[in-house]
Simulated scan of single mutants.
Amino acid sequence: MTDSFELQRLRDLSDDQLQEAYAPRGEPWLRVNFVSTVDGSATGADGLSGSINNDADKRVFDTLRKHADCLVVGAGTIRDEEYDVPAVPVVVVSRRADVPPTLREAPRGRVLMATVSSSEGLDRARELLGHDNVLVLGEDEIDLVALKAELLHRGWRDQLCEGGPSLFGDLLAAGVVDELCWTISPRLVAGDGPRIAGGPTVDVDARPALLLEQDGTLLGRWLVRAQGAG
């Protein structure tokens, strides 16, 4: 697949073609997947992303999860969206080492925690998840460069982050994001909902590589870093 692209109809792509269209471009490959409204909100009026997604977004969401070797998700997003235990390992990012309630009964090895040595929740996280599944990556701030490298060391080349905005902003600031997969839902919600990236200001270039459309929904791939970097 080249960097030139044209708008394609999502319905025209078979499942195999969609899988190929979203194939990673390097190893390791860390991509972030978000949905937002046309006016930029990452959530609906209920504060959840589920209220603004649709069938087109769900099809790409499922495709990305089929590719993924692991998920990387902020603890707050997991709590808010009430994640079930996914089919692939999920890495919970939390400076407090707080294991979300919906994941506390998961089989060992299906849930990991990325946290810091100063966290008061370390012992409890190790008790729930197992010592080897709690990744201590810094004293007060999580080293996201080290996290990406640790996941690759475990054989997880295709790393999929599903938010939230603060984690996305931190990943951008750390320079470890390779790709943004972004769905624009054809809705306007106004209000003061969050953007897809939050936190301190960053200035990162992104190049469009794929654009799909279905019933007014736009779904694209944006390359954030050069292939093979990091």
Rank of each mutant, 00 (worst) to 15 (best):
165 P>M: 03
64 L>M: 14
57 D>I: 06
48 L>P: 00
92 V>C: 07
16 D>N: 10
27 E>W: 01
154 R>D: 11
29 W>E: 01
183 T>E: 00
139 E>C: 02
106 A>S: 12
124 R>Q: 15
55 D>C: 01
107 P>M: 03
163 G>D: 05
72 V>W: 00
216 G>T: 12
151 L>A: 03
177 V>N: 08
178 D>T: 03
162 E>I: 01
24 P>M: 09
77 T>S: 04
213 E>D: 11
225 R>T: 13
230 G>H: 15
89 P>T: 12
144 L>E: 04
112 L>F: 14
211 L>W: 04
166 S>I: 06
45 A>M: 10
56 A>H: 08
99 V>E: 00
53 N>Y: 04
176 V>S: 03
214 Q>K: 07
137 L>Y: 06
196 I>M: 14
199 G>H: 11
110 R>I: 00
122 L>P: 06
43 T>Y: 00
50 G>D: 06
159 Q>H: 05
150 E>H: 14
69 D>P: 02
212 L>V: 12
43 T>W: 01
8 Q>P: 00
10 L>Y: 10
216 G>W: 10
112 L>Y: 14
112 L>D: 03
143 D>T: 09
98 D>Y: 04
142 I>P: 01
82 E>S: 12
72 V>L: 12
183 T>S: 12
164 G>Q: 08
180 L>H: 05
51 S>D: 10
160 L>T: 10
17 Q>Y: 06
108 R>F: 11
42 A>N: 03
74 G>N: 02
118 S>P: 03
57 D>G: 07
136 V>G: 04
59 R>G: 01
60 V>I: 15
19 Q>E: 12
142 I>R: 00
131 H>P: 07
124 R>E: 15
113 M>V: 01
148 K>A: 15
130 G>D: 03
223 L>A: 12
20 E>Q: 15
34 F>Q: 07
61 F>V: 04
122 L>Y: 03
175 G>M: 10
218 L>M: 14
211 L>F: 05
132 D>Q: 13
105 E>H: 10
206 A>K: 07
169 G>R: 02
218 L>Q: 09
114 A>H: 09
137 L>G: 01
192 D>E: 14
182 W>H: 15
87 A>I: 01
200 P>M: 08
217 T>C: 09
103 L>K: 01
78 I>Y: 00
223 L>G: 07
157 R>C: 11
77 T>P: 00
95 R>M: 08
86 P>V: 07
145 V>S: 08
187 R>D: 10
209 A>K: 12
126 R>N: 03
84 D>G: 13
55 D>Y: 05
147 L>N: 02
80 D>R: 15
179 E>N: 06
105 E>G: 07
18 L>Y: 09
151 L>F: 02
118 S>D: 14
208 P>A: 12
198 G>A: 14
218 L>R: 13
35 V>A: 15
102 T>G: 13
222 W>P: 03
133 N>M: 03
18 L>K: 11
160 L>A: 05
210 L>V: 05
84 D>I: 04
54 N>S: 09
156 W>V: 00
82 E>G: 01
8 Q>F: 02
229 A>H: 13
147 L>K: 02
171 L>T: 08
15 D>S: 15
127 E>Y: 05
128 L>Q: 11
189 V>N: 12
225 R>Q: 12
149 A>R: 14
166 S>Q: 13
167 L>W: 03
163 G>V: 02
166 S>C: 00
